[in-house]
Amino acid sequence: MSEFLQQLLNGLSLGAIYALIALGYTMVYGVLRFINFAHSDVFMVGAFLGYYLGKLVPEHTIWGGLAVLAVSMIGCAILGMTIERLAYRPLRSAPTLNVLITAIGVSLLLEYTGQVFFGAAPRNFPSIFPVRNFSFGSVIVTSNQLIVIAVSVVLMIVLQLIVYRTKIGTAMRAVSLNPKAAALMGVNNDVVISFTFGLGSALAAAGGILYALNYPSIDPLMGVMPGLKAFVAAILGGIGNIPGAALGGLILGTVETFVSGSQWSTYKDAIAFAILIIIMLFRPAGLLGKFTVEKV
């Protein structure tokens, strides 16, 4: 039983990270209807920003950790908006496939540039937050897990407030519902899309730092697998659906943790994709998505 609780806790903290990344995918898909492959590399850049900033602040302090988190999020938001402005906006009217390929190009560019600038060797991530273990019975809770869960919950609440309680959030929802009608009602689509990229990238940066705290080694290709899995999480919950992305992330993280704790551990990377295929075949709109019938 205690092993089950322990695994559940590990799974939830991994799932919270997946959820943060998945939110970025799902928001961009909501407004632009395309898969932003570069998102997983923004996640990587976020972790590296955290690495360099983490050297500037004293280790093991709450305020230092939060400052690193905030500055990296701002940095990645700017990066995400720049990518959107330079690479995606010129292709706004092109077929989705072209934007997809461009996104892949941006993703490769970030990865290889990362390898040139940061070096391909993995590095140890500094422990920017205080480290302590709490034990409840035989269940051990590390402070990092608590931080991951707390930060994710706070960020998701903030996101929910932005999307449902602010003017720009309303505009985001309008654009994702119908971009043309939104434009006719006076919504500046470009500003909204740019903002969406900024928001998603900031969440990816937070995800990157939290991931690096729990798996303390970072390298320029670290984003690929978590990125793919977070994307699966976004689909699992129903792409374009914000609570769905959070739910999908939590489910995926938990399932994956249980699988890696079992005798099938070497198949843990396949599990995410098996879930993806099952969902696609039986409920293509995802758990919380609405199914639409195609009309002629």
């Binding site: 898969i35 989705t96 793919l228 994307f231 070497t266 990377d269 994709f273 993806l276 696609m280 293509p284």
Partner: peptide, 22 residues
């Protein structure tokens, strides 16, 4: 998988590719 279209088909084939690899 060919019952699916567009992005969804792309993802399912990607998933199968990764499963074959694993």
């Amino acid at each position: 998988s060919l019952r699916l279209k567009g992005d969804y088909l792309a993802l399912v084939t990607l998933g199968f590719g990764e499963i074959i690899r694993v």
